[in-house]
Simulated scan of single mutants.
Amino acid sequence: MGSDFAPVARALNARGFDLAMRGEAIRPHLRAGDATILWQGVDDPAERARALEGGVHDVVGPWMHEAETVARIVRLVQVRQPQLALGDLLIHLMDRRVTRAGRPVSLLAREYALLLYLARRPGEAVSRVELLRAVWRLDFDPGTNSVEVHMLRLRAKLDRGFPRPMLLTVKGQGYMLDAGA
């Protein structure tokens, strides 16, 4: 990859993208979401065509302006980004954006982790103990009201301004994300 890719990697990391490298040093590939991007060390149109015909989603390299390279990678990730959709709730798994009915929902890291955990179990009541274990990584109950406080904040951000709440408290069982009908 060499130093030619370093500014591109810094620009992408600053935008919150998690890139995985694979492939040999001569033909390294970037993984961004489920998109595969070939980093080509020299401008070779014939090799670029072969790579694209072989299933690579795009080919970038040092012959491009850094801004163009970053824009191509960001576009691919945004178009191909894995998402979790529940009713009018959309969770973008790569860049951790959340929207409800098209409106952005700004979440802190712990709130996002709570929402994602519940979203992967829609309609299922999840206990406080299970949330402590999964989100806080605690195998004991610290005796604080952290779960309740975080759920209150998450509920305010997720449900405020909507006629029907998604985040429900199930008495005696825990919390549930309900996509509704």
Rank of each mutant, 00 (worst) to 15 (best):
G143S: 04
L158N: 02
A134L: 08
M151C: 04
A156S: 13
L152Q: 09
M176Q: 06
T144E: 15
W136C: 09
D141L: 08
R155V: 05
L167N: 08
F162E: 08
R137P: 12
P163Y: 10
T144W: 11
F140N: 06
S127V: 02
R164Y: 00
M176I: 09
R155L: 05
R128T: 06
R133A: 02
E148V: 12
K171I: 11
R137A: 08
Y175L: 03
V147K: 03
E148Y: 08
F162V: 07
V129H: 14
S146V: 15
V149S: 14
L132W: 02
N145L: 11
W136T: 07
W136N: 02
S146G: 14
Y175R: 13
G143M: 13
R128I: 01
N145H: 10
L138F: 04
T169A: 13
R160S: 11
V149L: 15
V135R: 03
Y175M: 00
L131Y: 02
L132P: 10
F162T: 10
L154V: 02
D141H: 01
F162L: 09
L152F: 12
L132R: 05
R153A: 04
W136R: 02
L167R: 05
D141V: 01
T169Y: 07
L167S: 04
H150R: 15
M176L: 15
R160H: 14
D159G: 10
E148C: 10
D159E: 14
V170G: 03
R164I: 14
M151D: 06
R128K: 02
V129P: 09
F140E: 05
F162I: 08
L158D: 04
G174T: 07
F162Y: 15
R153K: 13
D141Y: 05
K157R: 12
V129M: 03
D139W: 12
T144V: 06
N145C: 11
G174D: 10
R153L: 05
D178E: 15
S146E: 09
K171M: 07
T144F: 12
D141K: 02
M151T: 01
M166E: 05
T169W: 06
R153M: 06
G161H: 13
R153P: 04
G143N: 00
D159S: 12
D139S: 10
M151E: 07
K171C: 06
H150N: 09
L138D: 01
V170C: 01
R137Q: 14
T169N: 15
E148A: 03
P142V: 00
L138R: 07
M166G: 05
R160Y: 15
L132D: 04
Y175K: 06
T169R: 13
D178K: 09
V170W: 11
D141S: 00
L138E: 04
P163H: 12
Q173G: 12
E130D: 15
P165M: 00
R160E: 14
F140P: 10
Q173A: 12
N145A: 15
Y175D: 09
R137H: 11
E130G: 03
R137M: 13
K171G: 09
L131P: 04
V149E: 13
S146R: 13
R153N: 03
G143E: 12
G174E: 07
W136D: 10
M151G: 01
D159W: 06
